[in-house]
Design a protein around this nucleic acid. Structure first.
Lengths: 170, 170
DNA sequence: CCGAGCATGTAACACGTTACATGATTGC
DNA sequence: GCAATCATGTAACGTGTTACATGCTCGG
């Protein structure tokens, strides 16, 4: 692939859990070529060149995948705001939570479409070695979105009714 | 609080979803003092000085909390590795997933302890305005950890016997 | 007296994004 | 011809981490 195609492929297939910018991709591609891990293989559809993994590159990939993922220090802006909910105010919290719920719902819809697409696959695609793993990453998104939705709804329920019920209008 | 105490408080109370390093805290504290948002209030237990929010600082805090949280581009090392599961190999994937399951379980245990502590609160603590919000952030961790655990178990089940992965329930 | 914890700060470094500059090709 | 898309790369900037340097004080 070319750098451009690579970015498009990453956005399409890994979009839910990974992102790369051009500022990362092009220098990386240059470094990989210098180190003999990818090879410039020809000119693409327009003017750019496309790359492919060398055997050494494929080995380096397997190696990199085998290293344990480094845990990043967490930074959840929603939870931080909610933790200071008494400073933010109930309305602000509600807005935050309805947003989470909405985003979770729309993520779930998108995942359903993707799942339908994968499950409709037929022929050689159906037996591709990567298919089970695509389904697993998809399932991770589904679990995570369902959990976020359930949580947001639970919090909204806890927030909405004033526990001591006000006198109902009559 | 002093910068040191601040870091300890963040690690203790926000540890599941936020982290700050000294390299962040001290320069920030200096900037906040320069801008009149915090005030140096005295010497702490040993030799350092402690700070408190000024009224302007409290207003700025409320303001900052009200701004919508910026969404960070996702970077999930586990899912990235799993996506390339056919390159990584089944054993590597299993190791990844058992790790997720283990970490989720231990997180759930810790959350249970924290929940017990909050629910055992009595007297003035029980009516503190921040209490419901502490419970909400805790609940977020619980939902998320449960979802991660369920997902990991589902994937492990799909991986262990030579069997096509079943769609998750629901 | 000494080690552990409290406390402060800086400097180097890595990372990653954004914006910008530039240009080729293709379809209308 | 022109807009959209494909394509490449760099430079500035911000952010955050890590490691280091430093010193106090309190309990044993």
């Amino acid at each position: 692939m070319s750098g451009y195609q690579l970015r498009a492929a990453i956005a399409e297939h890994l979009g839910h859990f990974w992102a790369e910018s051009f500022g990362q991709i092009y220098p990386s591609l240059a470094r990989l070529e210098r180190d003999g891990l990818v090879r410039r293989v020809g000119t693409g559809r327009t003017s750019g060149s496309t790359f492919e993994l060398t055997p050494a590159g494929r080995a380096a990939l397997a190696d990199g995948l085998a290293t344990p993922p480094e845990s990043v220090p967490p930074r959840n802006g929603v939870l931080l705001r909610l933790f200071f909910g008494d400073v933010l105010g109930v309305d602000g919290c509600r807005a935050l939570l309805t947003d989470v719920a909405e985003q979770s719902r729309s993520a779930l819809e998108q995942y359903a479409r993707i799942r339908a697409g994968i499950e409709a696959e037929d022929g050689p695609e159906r037996d591709s070695p990567g298919r089970p793993y695509r389904l697993m990453t998809l399932s991770a998104g589904e679990h995570s979105a369902r959990a976020a939705l359930a949580w947001a709804q639970e919090c909204l329920a806890a927030l909405s009714p004033a526990r001591p019920p006000a006198a109902p209008p009559r």
